[in-house]
Simulated assay, not measured.
Amino acid sequence: MQFSKPGGRVMPRFTIPRDIHYGRESVGLLSTIRGKRAMLVTVGGEMKQRGILSRAETALRRTGMEVRLLEANNLEHVEQAVAEGASAMRAFAPDWIVALGSMAIDAAKLMWILYEYPEAALSDLHLPFSLPDLRRKARFAAIPSIGGGAPEATAFAEVGGTAEQYAWAAVDYGIVPDVTFIDPELGAAASSVEVAEAGLEAFAYALDAYAACEDAPFAEPPAQKAAELVLQHLVAAQAGDGFAREQILYAQTLAGIAFSNVRAGLTHALVRQTAAVLAGGRAQRGALNVVFLPHVIRFNAEDSRIRARYARLARALGLRGRADTLAVQALTDEIEALCATLKLACTLRQFGNAQELEGRFPAIAARAAEDFCTQANPRAVSKEDALEILRAAFGKAE
């Protein structure tokens, strides 16, 4: 957990969006925000095709605001895309930035920082919790899609990432959105694979956060609720049930609230660094979470104190096991069974070129051990520990 020091005292902090609007037609509640100019930020054509962009624009114009669209479609060139977006914001001078879709939220957060501070560069953002105050020029509204790491509720913004270079990222409570709108329609048109991976990503974030939040009592309830929603609804959501998909959207945001306030953990670090070397990159993250999560739980649970926390969560989720060891085993068994039910890859061997990926394990392990999120893991992690988990997650040849 990040600490601030008002008056010389070290005080814990819990930060979430000021308002979270949720439920059908909630995008229309953009009409409740007040300002002069709003810049809508999108990535790709998904929001336009689903009619979300039109609804958002209509709601904002209803307030009398001038509205302009910024399409950020060249995120493979992150520095250029963010600089161009920030330049467009400076030219238009919005007092609201409204990002539609999870990738757009991440990108727009970085643009927002450079809009507020034109003298800054992406390379200045690498130190966590070091940003100066934002909102001198604009506030931020987020409309998430399903999947993508819950930037609608977190202090994280991340774009890009390759085998040679870390993703461009900023971590600061100042970039938690002011207001978030969660509309179930945003999950209705997602593919079954997208829904399954989004749910498992939320589950992994929730469990990482729960394990790490012994001293963060405000983060524990959203972590537990997110895990409950995923186990209750993910299979039906993958099959297309509208109510179940709505619950997965809510689980995503709840998990984001939890992990943002404890800074995630080892699963997220391993996923980030492994996805960077895989074809498809960020798109692979949801599937990778369920591959790593059981192994991270087993690693962390070697500490009896952490094992007791996992066991308590397992029992709260309705899993059996009187002894803590048996409860934790029931939890990892449930995750692996869920992976099989959803017909997702359950080992790293099933991703792309297995031999090439295995050869990159030492580099991935080194980067994961140094990853910012690993600092929040409840058990210390060495490069050798990360490498052992990678090898376990690789699986055996059939």
Rank of each mutant, 00 (worst) to 15 (best):
E158V: 14
A104S: 07
R135K: 13
T58G: 12
G149D: 03
A157M: 06
E66G: 13
A81H: 02
L60D: 09
G51A: 04
E119M: 05
D95Q: 03
L40Y: 02
W96R: 08
V98Q: 05
S145Q: 09
M103A: 13
G147P: 01
N74R: 15
E71H: 04
Q49A: 15
M39H: 07
G45L: 15
L70W: 10
R90K: 13
E158D: 09
P151N: 02
I143T: 03
H126N: 14
A86T: 05
A153R: 11
M89I: 04
R68K: 11
A99W: 09
A121N: 15
L70Q: 13
A72D: 05
A138K: 00
S54D: 15
V82T: 05
D106M: 01
L134P: 03
E79I: 00
A72W: 02
A121C: 12
S102T: 11
G101V: 08
A38S: 13
G45F: 02
Q80H: 14
L60G: 03
P132Q: 04
S145I: 07
G147M: 04
L69S: 10
A138R: 03
S102F: 02
L114I: 01
T58V: 14
A104R: 08
A86D: 08
V41F: 09
A59E: 04
R90A: 10
V82Q: 06
P132K: 04
A120L: 15
A99L: 02
R136D: 05
R135E: 08
A120I: 14
L100H: 06
A93G: 09
T63Y: 06
A81Q: 03
A153K: 04
L131W: 05
V82A: 11
S102P: 01
A107C: 09
G101Y: 06
T58A: 14
V82G: 10
R62I: 12
R139C: 03
A153P: 10
A141D: 03
P151D: 00
D106G: 02
F92R: 00
L114K: 10
F156T: 05
N73E: 12
I113W: 03
A72H: 03
P132H: 12
A150N: 10
R135V: 08
M89T: 02
E71F: 00
I105G: 00
G85D: 10
R68P: 07
F140G: 00
G149R: 05
Y117V: 10
E116Y: 03
E152C: 12
G64C: 07
A104I: 05
A142Q: 10
P128C: 00
P118E: 04
G148N: 02
V98R: 04
E158I: 14
A88M: 06
Y115L: 00
I52A: 11
A138G: 11
E119A: 08
K48I: 14
L53E: 10
E57H: 04
P94F: 05
E152D: 12
E46T: 15
A38K: 00
A56F: 13
A99F: 01
P151Y: 03
P151M: 00
R135D: 07
I113A: 03
L53M: 13
L75A: 09
N74C: 14
W112F: 01
V43G: 02
E84G: 02
L131S: 07
E116N: 07
